[in-house]
């Protein structure tokens, strides 16, 4: 069985200096319970691959950042959290910025065993500096490298005991690609069901990608009110 009793136990083997992918677009689809466990776990000098680093006020990965555990962040949009901007300005956090689609595809490529890909997105811009560029069918492309992780922390709606995952609506975002790109993928879910109870055609992430499963203890509505969401 892949189901663990606690989120902290599900992070067994995670060590200082590792690369950890964390799903979510803002807080939607972010594994908030596992992020809290990662804060409790204490691992330092982490490289975090995530679209952004939580939201202001210690929400999501913002809490891990405030604890000083993140050395480097790879993502696409950190501007919306002033705490991230401040950490960069203090020299405490190194940021690698990628166009959002390049980030998603680099994670997908990592999980799919590719050595990289050429994309027209960002070619000729500041974000292509230092990268190989090539004309393909008359259009400039930039070579992007795959991303892989020691651990991937993902959020889903339902899981069975094998680790098959189903996501709810736009909760999917980066989670399916990250589930495939982590050496150890841990999924946090609202509902655990028996093997055979998930209709096979509805499964988004097949179980071979998922090593451990825990129940979600923290939901997005616990950290962000409906009024804040609508603001």
């Amino acid at each position: 069985m892949k189901v663990r009793d606690s989120a902290l136990a599900a992070l067994d083997g995670l060590r200082d200096g590792m690369t950890v992918m964390v799903g979510g677009f803002g807080l939607v689809g972010a594994p908030l319970t596992l992020i809290d466990a990662l804060c409790e776990h204490g691992a330092r000098d982490l490289t975090i691959v995530s679209n952004n680093l939580g939201e202001p006020g210690g929400k999501g990965l913002s809490r891990l950042l405030a604890l000083g555990r993140i050395r480097r962040a790879v993502g696409s949009y950190f501007t919306s959290n002033p705490e991230v901007v401040a950490a960069v300005e203090r020299g405490e956090l190194e940021v690698t910025l990628l166009p959002q689609g390049t980030l998603a595809e680099a994670i997908r490529a990592g999980g799919a065993g590719l050595g990289g890909f050429f994309t027209p997105v960002g070619a000729g811009t500041l974000l292509a500096e230092g990268k190989e560029q090539r004309l393909i069918d008359g259009r400039l492309h930039v070579l992007e490298s795959p991303l892989r992780a020691d651990f991937s922390l993902v959020r889903a709606w339902r899981a069975d005991g094998l680790g098959n995952l189903v996501y709810d609506k736009t909760q999917q975002n980066f989670n399916p690609a990250m589930a495939a790109a982590g050496a150890v993928t841990v999924a946090e879910v609202d509902e655990l069901v028996e093997v055979g109870d998930l209709p096979p055609a509805t499964i988004h992430t097949p179980h071979l990608y998922v090593k451990r499963v825990v129940r979600a203890q923290v939901r997005i509505t616990d950290v962000k009110s409906v009024e804040e969401m609508l603001r």
Binding site: V28, Q100, G101, Y167, K169, P176
Partner: peptide, 27 residues
């Protein structure tokens, strides 16, 4: 709370709505 647009604003499902992951979306 699990249904937002890229501005992180809550939106609504309509007939024909379809969800997919970020890699597919940018594809």
């Amino acid at each position: 709370p699990n249904l937002v647009n890229a501005g992180k604003q809550p939106v609504t499902e309509v007939p024909g709505s379809v969800y997919f992951d970020s890699a597919a979306s940018f594809g």
